[in-house]
Simulated assay, not measured.
Amino acid sequence: MSSLQGKVAVVTGGSSGIGLATARLFVKHGARVVITGRRQDTLDAALAEIGDGAMAIQGDVADLAHHDDVARIVRQAFGGADIYVANAGVNTITPAHEVTVAEFDQQFGINTRGTFFGVQKITPLLRYGASVVVVGSLASERVLAGHAVYAGTKAALGAFARSWAVELSGRGIRVNMLSPGPTDTAIIEKLGVPEAELEGFIAGMSAAIPLGRLGAPDELARAALFLASDESSFVTGINLRVDGGMALL
């Protein structure tokens, strides 16, 4: 069994979906976990669900000052960190010719800039042998309707992760990408699909996945646990697709 006993983990976007499932699993395996999120009420609800072993920091990853706050609080509370999961992200399904500047800036601000500077600020606190897990997306490799901007934000993360894997190797820090396929989280309801069409939208996505269904947050969390733990001690610079085989088609 993978063990994170005594480890300190930071999970951005840890108040819902894949991030919450990951934080919950990390605590179950012995880690002390810091979750971040934009809304205090959802953070409070997440902490109640996770139980002992977690704390929360409210803020927006698109705000660079937030990453300074996270680094400062983690240093004060724990002296350093062993795991950083860059999970926070947003997606808006919009055909490329209809994308607004606001939509573009929001997705790149949260998904791309937020991840880059989050890793930059936490890196000095990462202990020897730490693990960084960057949450990407199947969309960065497979063309999905209305995902041009989102795909671009996640493709950039792959380039970041490969560079970091080399740059940080001298400190024994491993950096890997976790790329989910369609996953049954609240983000599905926030994609802009009309409620009357949501059931058909989900059915269509499921039909495009060889395993015939969406992923579950806990399935992605178990993959994150593998990349975060010593079970993957000789793994760095990879892109682990957890997509039910969707990338094959």
Rank of each mutant, 00 (worst) to 15 (best):
Thr112Gln: 05
Leu125Asn: 07
Ala130Gly: 01
Met55Leu: 15
Ala86Gln: 08
Gln120Trp: 08
Asp69Asn: 12
Met55Trp: 10
Val85Leu: 09
Asn91Ser: 13
Ala65Val: 12
Leu25Cys: 04
Val132Ala: 01
Asp82Ala: 02
Glu49Pro: 06
Ala46Thr: 06
Arg127Met: 01
Ala130Tyr: 00
Leu125Thr: 07
Val34Cys: 07
Ala45Glu: 13
Asp60Gln: 08
Ala23Ser: 12
Gly59Glu: 04
Asn87Arg: 00
Thr123Gln: 09
Asp68Cys: 01
Val27Cys: 12
Glu49Asn: 07
Thr123His: 05
Arg38Ile: 13
Val119Thr: 12
Gln76Trp: 10
Val101Tyr: 03
Phe108Lys: 03
Thr100His: 10
Gly136Gln: 14
Arg39Ala: 06
Ala62Tyr: 10
Glu49Phe: 11
Ala62Gly: 15
His66Val: 08
Arg127Thr: 00
Gln58Ile: 09
Ile83Thr: 01
Ala45Asp: 10
Phe78Tyr: 12
Leu64Ala: 11
Phe108Pro: 04
Ile110Leu: 12
Ile110Phe: 10
Thr42Leu: 00
Leu43Ala: 05
Asp105Gly: 05
Val134Asn: 00
His66Phe: 15
Gly109Trp: 13
Arg38Trp: 03
Ala130Met: 00
Gly79Asn: 05
Gln40Trp: 04
Ala46Phe: 06
Gly80Val: 03
Val133Thr: 03
Asp105Arg: 14
Thr36Gly: 10
Thr100Ser: 13
Leu64Pro: 04
Val135Glu: 08
Asn111Cys: 06
Val34Tyr: 01
Leu126Phe: 04
Lys121Phe: 00
Tyr128Phe: 14
Gly129Ile: 02
Val133Phe: 05
Asp52Glu: 15
Ile122Asn: 00
Thr22Gln: 11
Ala71Phe: 00
Ala23Leu: 06
Ala56Cys: 02
Phe104His: 14
Leu25Glu: 11
Phe117Ile: 07
Gly114Ser: 08
Val90Pro: 09
Lys28Cys: 11
Glu103Gly: 02
Ala77Asn: 15
Asp68Thr: 11
Phe78Pro: 02
Gln58Thr: 13
Ala45Phe: 02
Thr22Ile: 06
Leu125Gln: 09
Leu25Phe: 06
Asp105Tyr: 07
Ala81Thr: 00
Val133Tyr: 00
Asn111Met: 08
Val133Glu: 05
Glu103Trp: 07
Ala130Arg: 00
Val132Gln: 00
Ile122Val: 04
Gln107Asp: 02
Glu49Leu: 10
Gly30Phe: 03
Phe104Asn: 07
Thr36Cys: 10
Ile93Gly: 11
Val134Trp: 01
Gln40Arg: 10
Ile35Trp: 00
Glu103Val: 09
Leu64Thr: 09
Ala54Met: 08
Tyr128Gly: 15
Ala48Asn: 09
Val70Met: 03
Asp60Pro: 12
Asp105Ala: 14
Ala81Leu: 07
Lys28Asp: 13
Asp69His: 12
Asp69Trp: 02
Met55Pro: 06
Gly129Met: 05
His29Asp: 11
Gln58Gly: 09
Ile73Asp: 15
Ala88Phe: 03
Arg113Thr: 10
Gln58Asp: 09
Gly109Cys: 14
Ala65Gly: 04
Tyr128Lys: 15
Ala65His: 12
Gly53Thr: 04
Asp60Tyr: 09
Thr92Leu: 14
Gln120Glu: 13
Ala56Trp: 02
Tyr128Gln: 15
His97Cys: 15
Ala139Leu: 07
Thr42Glu: 03
Phe78Ser: 05
Leu43Phe: 02
Val99Trp: 01
Val27Pro: 08
